[in-house]
Design a protein around this nucleic acid. Sequence first.
DNA 1: GTTTTGATGATACATATGTACCATCAAAAG
DNA 2: CTTTTGATGGTACATATGTATCATCAAAAC
Lengths: 213, 213
Amino acid sequence: MPKRVDHARRRAHIADALVRLAAREGLHAVTMRGVAAEAEVSVRLVQYYFESKGKLMHAALERLEEQSHQRWSARLAGMRRPVTTRAFVDAFLAEALPTDGPSRDFHLVWTSYATLAMTDPELAAQPFVAGPDRLERRLAEALRRAQDDGALGPGRDARSEAALLLALGHGLGTSVLVGQRTPEAARTILRAHLDQLFAAPDVTSAPGDARKA
Amino acid sequence: MPKRVDHARRRAHIADALVRLAAREGLHAVTMRGVAAEAEVSVRLVQYYFESKGKLMHAALERLEEQSHQRWSARLAGMRRPVTTRAFVDAFLAEALPTDGPSRDFHLVWTSYATLAMTDPELAAQPFVAGPDRLERRLAEALRRAQDDGALGPGRDARSEAALLLALGHGLGTSVLVGQRTPEAARTILRAHLDQLFAAPDVTSAPGDARKA
DNA sequence: GTTTTGATGATACATATGTACCATCAAAAG
DNA sequence: CTTTTGATGGTACATATGTATCATCAAAAC
């Protein structure tokens, strides 16, 4: 047998090139030749590791998802224990907004894919439903726990609030990507809402929560 | 002089065809030939009334904006006077979500344009900032009036809440377009938030009766 | 009636793009 | 060494697409 190569590595390299290209020039401008150039490989190689452009697009989307999951896990792992509900939700929001470069790239390309999936039946809409759905369930669960602890305002529906937070995150993220708002402004709005949501009667549950001046 | 034609009418006809096509097969699938076929005219005519594809895209976007403004005005005009703040905001939300067919088409194509504008410097990002900005100011103004009347919960920042509502509307709209949520579910979430926002203090006031000083 | 000119049609052209095909190289197996 | 085969390069081909060019038609102006 001749030289063996780590296929997963090559595929990841090329998929990353696609994401970079899409983040820079738009997903609509992604082409086989463009991806090959960005990855600094020949077009043939892109064909070799991904049968067709459709497969490549799917693979890049899966990689995006994987990376997102990875980033989220890393952030969770880096948090001080025990993780309060407020801290958990704060972390979620920080990840939900396009702040630094990589995050911006991720959100931009992800949004592009989502927009594409609205009409293209080839592109499974599943990732755009399953992913957020899972996050929504986790968030709802966290909020429910907070509610049991009395940290959540009364008359709140955890499920509904979780869905709201997710939608709000996406909406604010879009406004940032379009250039309407700065990440800081978006963050401020989000935090204000959280302060309202977690408006405790008089008790401050855990250390590390932000206080308004 | 030979036969004269209403250029504005022809341009509107073709632009509408583009929007229909984009709503059905995606903005990325919009092509000169496709638009011509959808409008049932020759490609030459599309070239004749719009110099290039870029101009056509710009024109269609402007038309979208115009139609949106038109729909909003019509809804406002159809409301029973006097228009309470809550009713105003409700109307805004109803317009912000993709409910019926035309609304869905509008939001889908508008979102596609916005996604495109994130990377394409040709497409002025201005419409995606100026439009929402204006709406945001109007909303903020309405909320401020409501606050003066005591209809808004205390400790609320009208500006911030207006921005939140706009972002929330977009986020929920996207979740509907992707198929994650039904329009009804989105509407429910939105209404729940509004109920919270307009939660009157223990003052017993008749719902829907926001009197002006 | 002839001319003029706005409106419209058909088509050619250069280019971009996805994909298929053929060739080469090098390392492992015999 | 020879053979085998995974990895890679180069390129041709069919098609789609934006745009330019040539042609036609009909109504208004003379």
